[in-house]
Computed example of a mutant assay.
Amino acid sequence: MILFVKLFLGHLLGDFIWQPNSWVADKEIKKHKSIYLYVHIFLHGILAAILAGEISFIPYAVLIAVTHGIIDLIKLNFQKKKNKRTWFVADQIAHILILIGVVFLYENKTVPNFWTNNEFWIFLTGILLLTKPASIFIKTIISIWAPESKIDNQDNSLIAAGNYIGILERLFVFGFILTNHFEAIGFLLAAKSIFRFGDLKEAKDRKLTEYVLIGTLISFGAAILAGLIVQALLLQLP
Rank of each mutant, 00 (worst) to 15 (best):
D155C: 07
D72A: 11
L213A: 15
G198E: 12
F57Q: 09
Y164G: 04
N180Q: 15
A160W: 05
P133W: 03
I29P: 03
V39E: 04
L235C: 03
K27W: 01
A223S: 02
L237E: 12
E119A: 13
I2R: 04
K82D: 13
G166K: 10
E28M: 09
I35N: 14
F88I: 08
Y60I: 08
T216H: 05
D199W: 12
K81T: 14
F4H: 08
F16T: 10
F78G: 04
K6M: 04
G175W: 03
L105I: 14
N163G: 07
V230K: 10
L99C: 08
K139A: 15
A226W: 00
G162A: 05
G45H: 03
Y60Q: 09
A160C: 02
H181T: 10
D205R: 06
Q79N: 06
A146G: 04
L237C: 12
I127K: 02
N108M: 13
F16W: 09
S22N: 06
T216W: 00
E183F: 00
T140H: 13
T67V: 13
L208Y: 14
F123P: 02
A184M: 01
L188V: 07
Y211Q: 07
L105E: 08
K30P: 01
L73G: 13
F123H: 09
G198C: 05
F220I: 00
A134H: 04
T179Q: 15
A94I: 14
E28F: 08
L225C: 10
T216R: 04
P133N: 07
V39T: 06
I64A: 02
A232G: 09
G162Y: 02
K75R: 09
V111N: 05
S135I: 09
G166N: 05
S157E: 14
Q236G: 05
I138T: 04
L129I: 12
H68N: 08
R206D: 10
D205C: 11
S135G: 10
P147N: 07
V5L: 15
L130G: 01
I93S: 08
S143N: 10
T67Q: 02
H181S: 14
E119K: 09
R196W: 05
L73P: 11
Q154Y: 05
L105H: 14
M1N: 04
N153Q: 13
R170W: 02
F197A: 15
H181I: 07
I55D: 06
G227H: 11
S135W: 03
G215K: 04
L200R: 08
I29S: 13
I98M: 03
V39R: 12
L37N: 12
S22W: 07
W23C: 06
L63E: 04
N77V: 05
I224L: 06
Q19K: 06
I74S: 06
I151C: 01
A190R: 05
A52N: 03
W23D: 03
G69V: 13
L47G: 01
K33W: 00
L12C: 11
F42M: 06
